[in-house]
Write a protein that binds this DNA or RNA. Sequence first.
DNA 1: CGTCAGTTTGACGGTCGTCAAACTATGTGG
DNA 2: CCACATAGTTTGACGACCGTCAAACTGACG
Lengths: 279, 279
Amino acid sequence: MSPETVQGAASPVLRAAAAATAAAPKAVHVIHVKPAQERPPERPQERAQKRPAIARCSGCSMRGVCMPADLTASQLAQLDSIICATRPVQRGDALYRTNDEFESIYAVRLGSFKTVVMHRDGREQVTGFQIAGEALGLDGICTDRHNGDAIALEDSVVCVIPFAQLEAVCREIRSMQHHVHQIMSGEIVRESSLMLLLGTMTAEQRVAAFLLNLSKRFKALGYSAAEFNLRMTREEIGCYLGMKLETVSRMFSRFQRERLIDTRGKQIRIVDPERLAKV
Amino acid sequence: MSPETVQGAASPVLRAAAAATAAAPKAVHVIHVKPAQERPPERPQERAQKRPAIARCSGCSMRGVCMPADLTASQLAQLDSIICATRPVQRGDALYRTNDEFESIYAVRLGSFKTVVMHRDGREQVTGFQIAGEALGLDGICTDRHNGDAIALEDSVVCVIPFAQLEAVCREIRSMQHHVHQIMSGEIVRESSLMLLLGTMTAEQRVAAFLLNLSKRFKALGYSAAEFNLRMTREEIGCYLGMKLETVSRMFSRFQRERLIDTRGKQIRIVDPERLAKV
DNA sequence: CGTCAGTTTGACGGTCGTCAAACTATGTGG
DNA sequence: CCACATAGTTTGACGACCGTCAAACTGACG
């Protein structure tokens, strides 16, 4: 287990361990920043299902991230028949919320999300940030209802994967079955490392681990490992790392002073990853 | 690393995820509490290897915990042919360790375990305590190697479930497939709540939550929810809850003073669960 | 240009970690 | 069987880290 895997390596909807794919980084990037008009809190219900677009895995640039490598053409065709919809989610909107009925899991196609669990008394914990190629919704399988919220951090698009149909495919295609198991196991391992972080690290170490983990994942997608934009606020980062937003800000400032990073607002440049890893 | 696996009694793993399943708590009861009560630690030696009890899922008293409910007789027979081994693990010994090759998952048949992940610098985090009916080893699926250690807290017995064979069964028996998925998802959800605990709760709240959670699980197995023995040390509890052993001890003492619990060493009696839950 | 969400920085205090010592339980060996 | 050794637990004193509160600053957007 590596420390820097705070977030766990790609935990995609079917992540490829190899992450090799330098798949379509470009496209994603662009959209990324473009802000949207948003209404943060909101009750999106009907909008949810709007405009499902057709998407096929066989032609998807992120296939390497989501799928096992050894599928035959006919197996791919079989997948295409099942994973046939994408769904746009506007910034601030929920892909699903706690207690929503579970039907599908999702792969982030474009954009990014946070997943949040909350206690009745109002305390919240961000359990993860998901970027392109990563999976969402696995929390719903065990009770047939989602156990937390998934909120878009920017205008995003997900692939919708009806779970019952995915299970059917997994009964037929062995490599697909194993791949799905690997993804779920990967999520378990990712969360374990987060627990290690939350249970044993200082605020300084947590922030460093967070930045390095993000960096690693961007790199795996073909982006720069050194320079990227944070899509989440200081408060969301704090909520993820188990600390207050002021503390997050102080750590950023400290790293800045020590020339470990270079930051202006949400823009981050990692100047000295080695020393950052040692804090 | 561990003594030969003994053949025999087997009862699967695959604990009912949400535990919700009020499945067959009664039956399990009989097996477990009895022996455990009086002799916490113990020195078993040769005992390990002997006694190749024959047991099968079909006759296992914990079947309700491990299996989907609607299996036919022939499906059960199919399982019996696969999950045919149990393995004793002595107190303090590892069922598996980080980096061990992954082959099987396990169901705790008897006794209890802790799972631990660690950072190279020595920091450790206990990610869970597993008691009868609960699953172990799911962390190994994603990389084919285990991602942490599983250590017996007392002399214990697990059912060994070769994962490749389990996958084969899941390709044939739909309810079994879904059950396995539910167990993995349940583990993801369990870890999420632990992250909530680690990220947002005070030491006092964590200890209270820990005791109530244990209580609930014992109760689900048919034991007393009010009175039980802790199998782990204060240090292990602290390592699980993200605090030092002295703090754990102080919280126990505080709860004792406030008449919320009654404790002497590892013996715990929950006196006022309602107020404990409100801490 | 004004508003507002988000960020930064400072001052202060509480919670919990650290260190230390005494106490208890469990297991060992004489 | 007792005495000792060791592991585990409890309690106290003290201080550091980080949370809280507050104020000023920045940038985005209407």
